[in-house]
Write a protein that binds this DNA or RNA. Sequence first.
DNA 1: CAAATACTTAAGTAGTTACCTAAGTATTTG
DNA 2: CAAATACTTAGGTAACTACTTAAGTATTTG
Lengths: 112, 112
Amino acid sequence: MATEADVLDRTFHALADPSRRSIVVQLTTGPASVSALAAPLKMSLPAVIQHIEVLQKSGIVYSEKVGRVRTCRLEPAPMQAVEHWIAQHRQVWEGRLDRLGDVLNTTYRRIP
Amino acid sequence: MATEADVLDRTFHALADPSRRSIVVQLTTGPASVSALAAPLKMSLPAVIQHIEVLQKSGIVYSEKVGRVRTCRLEPAPMQAVEHWIAQHRQVWEGRLDRLGDVLNTTYRRIP
DNA sequence: CAAATACTTAAGTAGTTACCTAAGTATTTG
DNA sequence: CAAATACTTAGGTAACTACTTAAGTATTTG
């Protein structure tokens, strides 16, 4: 089974490459074939396929082949996991800053 | 100058490693020294320093040395950039799904 | 001032990544 | 059915990653 950490590892890794992010952005406008995704990228088709595989392993992209055309589309869950992870920790961090004065007061009061 | 794409590249890459994410989580509870960050991790101190360097290059972490102690703390901007990037494209994607019926109608009407 | 502390630097290694070119395999289409 | 299309697989390479151990350098502390 893929743990939550594995999903975050693979999703953050998948999104760490500008070519892969541009594939994701393209897919936000709707499903697309492998060659349609490859068209704007300045690299070989096999290179694009490898990028799509990285996106698929993260779960961000799902694809199905019909005839000779493979159609790719986005899956929301992994991106939501990433967004949730960031939001969660940003909240703690921001909350901590908001209460910095209180924390200092508490700390000073604690010293006997 | 670091472009927006560079910031996203480096921030997504920095967060793609579980040890680095655990350093970030530790830092959400407040600034910490290098050895304090290293303590819960099962690896050598130089390895931890290398992880901190990756976090610093992304801008997620900032550090200052006073005496022989280096204190690390979080910087919010890069994580906000990532959160913004995801939210922005998720919005497009979700909007597209919401209007799927309309789009299909429009497409059919366009055929002469 | 010697010893302990808190990093820091250097150098090496096994594994991964991001490409490439060349040569496939199915699936349409004329 | 021959040719074009849309991938797919295989194999190679240069660069990068995530560690390691060993040997530093400052800075406190007893």
